[in-house]
Design a protein around this nucleic acid. Structure first.
Length: 473
RNA sequence: GUCCCCUUCGUUCAGUGGUCAGGACUCAGGAUUUUCAUUCCUGCAACAGGGGUUCGAAUCCCCUAGGGGAUACCA
């Protein structure tokens, strides 16, 4: 049977990086196995629905290059892929459960449940439904349903343990006594996650459920549902969580958690994928830079790590820098320009400056700041730099350089080395003593990108002007 | 509280009974470079603790501690 995985987010906000990693793993596994990857929107909680998040989600997936074979906008005979449009399917399913005695209507009010929970907590008992409505006869239940609001609960076994195998965790056992009679259908007629998820995964023929670790404790409920329906359960893999530096669940309080935040900050989509893929799994080789194709080829679901991983910005930054440096020039220039002020974008020489910065960037956001050395007015040379300017050899370099300039119509980076070579020969000055005076004269600083780029960016006239300014009569 | 999961350098990932416990990021030092950055080299740095099992444990078992997750008519 061919593999089918799914990513099933709920549209309640931004796309969390952990959520994206889940999507990525599902995608990698499906692609590697030559299977199908589907996207399903779990919008069964009308209270939590946030407008625009579906669009946002689709956009994020697209930006990061994760394509799905079926899902919103790509319907097939297994759809629709919005749970809110599948309500009839869930109702039919839960009716079957009801008729077969696997589920029951519960008429308990929210108030009673609240009190129940309070008293249980006071007695240090685990809060759980006490089963008041569990033994109602179908007849009675149907009668009361006429004029009383109700939910439908799953009749969970009372004794024994639920043992199952997880692709990441191995064998796991949970006592049935720990499992509450889960609500399957809310009083508003919408299903809960547990019901909708199981029903959809079955009808969409999902073979592997790859999702976050927070779902591990509800596996018994799901397995019981499959059992009641008489369906085979998919294989499961519960992924370790992404963590804050203090090892709590990665949250907004301690930094950016939304994919779009990182996109906005100038991170390269490929780098984001590469980095996230390596949080919780690693091919175990020296190289850590992987294209999507390489990730697909190398991915091994059996080698997913069990422990949670701290989201390490330092490494992301490094990796992003790698992607920027390895980017082909055309794409680099195109992307880099989007980080410029509109007026700078019209600057005909800006590419020269951008090219010089390519090795100096970890993220594109650093561009405006690092561009300063090209576009800004040079700072007053500090004492150390001033000393360099005052050297007799510096003066010689200046005049020789100026003389070179006389012969040129324009100043090109490509010619710069040759020019300097001639200046060196004529002046007899070389090495640092040759270059530093020019650097200081041109930029006011002792450090910066390659001088040739700076010179070309400035242009002949401006370069000459700056050097002349430091020439002593 | 209860249940479940987890525990190798600061971070991340290798290592599934015999390894000098390895790689990557960070950091430090060095080389290259006109400087910075890049690149390259070197180095610092870990098996949570305690019991077993075994000739031999990071690797298997138990306990403890710590961390995380779940305990909703949210997902």
């Amino acid at each position: 049977m061919s593999v089918v995985t799914r990513f099933a987010p709920s549209p309640t906000g931004f796309v969390h990086v952990g959520s994206h990693r889940t999507a990525l793993y599902n995608y990698l596994f499906a692609r590697q196995q030559g299977g199908k990857f589907i996207l399903r929107i779990e919008d069964t909680d009308r209270k939590r629905y946030v407008k625009g998040t579906v669009e946002n989600l689709l956009f994020s997936l697209q930006r990061l290059g994760i394509s799905y074979d079926a899902g919103p906008g790509k319907e097939d005979d297994k759809g629709p892929y919005f749970q809110s449009r599948r309500i009839d399917i869930y109702r039919k399913a839960v009716e079957q459960l009801l008729q077969q005695g696997h589920a029951y209507r519960c008429f308990c009010t929210a108030q009673r449940l609240e009190e129940l929970r309070k008293s249980q907590t006071a007695q240090k008992l685990p809060p759980a439904y006490d089963g008041l409505c569990r033994e109602l006869t179908l007849e009675e239940s149907e009668q009361r349903a006429q004029n009383t609001p109700f939910v439908i609960r799953l009749k969970v076994p009372k004794e024994g343990t639920c043992a199952f195998h997880d692709l990441v965790r191995g064998n796991v056992q949970i006592a049935w006594s720990q499992i509450d009679d889960q609500v399957l259908m809310k009083s508003d007629g919408f299903p809960t996650y547990h019901l909708a998820n199981v029903v959809d995964d079955h009808f969409m023929e999902v073979t592997h459920i790859i999702r976050g670790e927070e779902w591990l404790p509800s596996v018994p409920k799901h397995l019981h549902l499959y059992h009641c329906f008489g369906w085979d359960a998919p294989k499961m893999a519960h992924l370790p969580l992404l963590l804050n530096p203090d090892r709590s669940k990665l949250s907004k309080r301690q930094g950016d958690v939304a994919i779009e935040d990182y996109l906005k900050k100038g991170y390269v989509p490929e780098a984001l994928n590469n980095f996230l893929a390596l949080m919780g799994w690693n091919p175990g080789e020296k190289n850590e830079i992987y294209s999507m194709e390489e990730l697909i080829a190398a991915f091994d679901i059996n080698k997913i790590v069990k422990a949670g991983a701290v989201f390490d910005l330092q490494k992301l930054n490094w990796m992003n820098g790698q992607y920027i440096r390895n980017m082909d020039t055309a794409r680099y220039l195109k992307e880099a320009k989007t980080w410029l002020h509109p007026e700078r974008q019209r600057d005909s020489r800006i590419e020269t400056a951008l090219l010089a910065l390519k090795t100096a960037l970890n993220t594109f956001t650093e561009i405006p700041e690092k561009l300063g050395i090209f576009t800004g007015t040079p700072p007053e040379a500090n004492e150390e730099a001033q000393n360099i300017l005052n050297e007799a050899s510096a003066q010689q370099v200046f005049s020789e350089f100026l003389r070179e300039m006389d012969a040129m119509t324009e100043l090109r980076e490509a010619d710069f080395k040759a020019i300097m070579k001639r200046v060196q020969e004529r002046s007899g000055v070389k090495g640092k003593e040759l270059w530093m005076p020019l650097r200081v004269a041109l930029t006011g600083a002792m450090h910066g990108p390659e001088l040739g780029y700076i010179a070309e960016y400035l242009g002949k006239a401006e370069a000459v002007r700056r050097i002349t300014a430091h020439l002593k009569k």
